[in-house]
Each structure stands twice: as C-alpha cells, then as structure tokens.
Nucleic acid binder design. Structure first.
Lengths: 125, 125
DNA sequence: TTCAGTAGTTCTGAATATATGAACAATGGA
DNA sequence: TCCATTGTTCATATATTCAGAACTACTGAA
C-alpha cells in the first residue's frame, strides 16, 4: 500500500485544483466533505452520489482530490477518513473554494427545480 | 465554416466551466480577454502566452471556452473577436469567475517571484 | 476577376488520460 | 487461522487532447 500524497498548496498548480473539481462526481464528493465537519469514509461518501459508482473509480477520484491538495486522507484501521483542507487553501487562494462549492449548490438547486417542474408537468398530462 | 455555438449560461454544466478553465493556456487566454475591455482577436491573444502554440490548438482552446459559455466570438471579416461573458455568468454563479481569475493572478505573481529568486541565486553562484 | 496574403477552422492520427472489472493488501473480529 | 470489510492497484478498453496538414473565408491589389 503506497503512502498517501499530500502536497503543499503552493506546490499545486491552479489547473490541478480546477481539474479536480471539473468533474460532477468529484465536486459532489468534495462538497459533501466540506459540508460535514467530521471526516467522511469512502463508503459513506458513495451514498451522497446520484448514481452508485464502482469502488475502484471512487478510489481514483479521491486520489485526484488528495493530490490536488483539496482533501487530506488518513487511514484508520480498515477505513479511510477524508477531511477538507479548505482553510489552508483559503489563505492561498481566497474565496476560490467557497465560490466553487457555492456554484455547485446553485446548480444542484436548479436541477431539483427543473426536475419538480417536469414532474408536475407529467402529473398534469 | 460551422456557425459558432454560444449556449445559455443555465444550460452549461458547472463541470464544463471548470474544465474549460482547468488548463493553463485557457485560463491565461480567458484572463487576458477579461482584462481587456475590447474584444481580442486570436492572433493578438497568442502573444500573451509564455510559449507560442500552434494556431490549430489555439482554435480548439477558444472553442472550448466558447462552448462553456465563457466567451463570445464574433467573426469580423477575416478575424475573430473574442469578448468575455462575465456579467451573464456573474448573475448565475456570483463570484465564481472573479475568484478563479484572481487565483490565476496570484499564481502568476508567485511564479514571477520564484523565477527572480532563482535568478538572483544563479547570479551569486 | 484572378491572385496572393491573412486569419482561423477542420480533419486526422498519435499521444495521453480516464473508467472499471479483477486481483490484491491491510485490518479487525469470530 | 479464516473470513468479512474497506479500500488500492493493475490491466485494458474507451475517450480526450494535441498539433501538423489541408482547408475555408475574407480582403486588397493587380
């Protein structure tokens, strides 16, 4: 089992941070980790996703978030706990993560509204 | 010559916006377009990049920015003028682009400082 | 009108990245 | 020890991206 990589924020190119969050699954995972104050295990994280994903894929996604400096992972026995590194990043790139997570929530809300509009329309027909 | 695609912001997934900006060349292009108040032609844009890139690559990068709703392109005679769509996006995702462009500038400054530190070190040796 | 030059675009194959099933490693009980 | 649980790594099929070559579209000059 290879040791986990946690780069210093100043060593992470902005492109890597944006790339890590430029994936619907990964923003959702990150937003959940940020929202909860206690670290989340991988298996608990899957449950917040719309569609279930294979665990190998989840593992890769979390590695990308980790190596982009966005989360910190710690192995506790058999499970892996994932915590956000927001405060560190906030000092280096003020407002960046807040606005991205905010945009993600705006998008989720818009999606819900669209879905319920479609549902009402279907119910009338 | 295919017509240019300019999607409505609400139809662009957040992932597409972040993906478009998750590339060093594309953020640099976008930051330049945002910084200038008058639209920039493709050829003028190349000059702001550190390394010159082939025009086919530039064309693809600008298409990605366009289809992510970030810029608006207009053909004027033989040239293509690229303008930012920041105001529209700002109303939909407040603060998003400001903080990303801001982060890009922070990164550029850090890069410059690092370079001049290395230069001084080399001069001493 | 034809030609040459300029500014971008599209096509295409090679290089690169991503997703996932299968095999594997690590830990904690029974 | 054996098994269940959690997650990682490997192999490979699939998808994306880059950049050279060929192309389109427009302009001005002859």
């Amino acid at each position: 089992m290879k040791p986990l990589i946690h780069p210093a924020i100043e060593d992470v190119p902005l492109a890597a941070i944006l790339h890590a969050l430029a994936d619907p699954v990964r923003v959702a995972l990150f937003a959940e980790i940020v929202a909860q104050d206690c670290p989340r295990s991988c298996s608990r994280l899957v449950s917040v996703l719309d569609a279930p994903i294979p665990k190998s894929t989840l593992s890769q996604h979390l590695r990308i978030l980790r190596e982009a400096g966005l989360i910190r992972g710690e192995r506790h026995g058999v499970e892996m706990r994932n915590a956000s590194r927001c405060p560190e990043i906030e000092t280096h790139y003020p407002g960046l993560l807040t606005s991205i997570v905010g945009a993600h929530e705006i998008q989720m809300d818009a999606g819900k509204k669209r879905a319920s509009r479609l549902a009402r329309k279907a119910a009338r027909a």
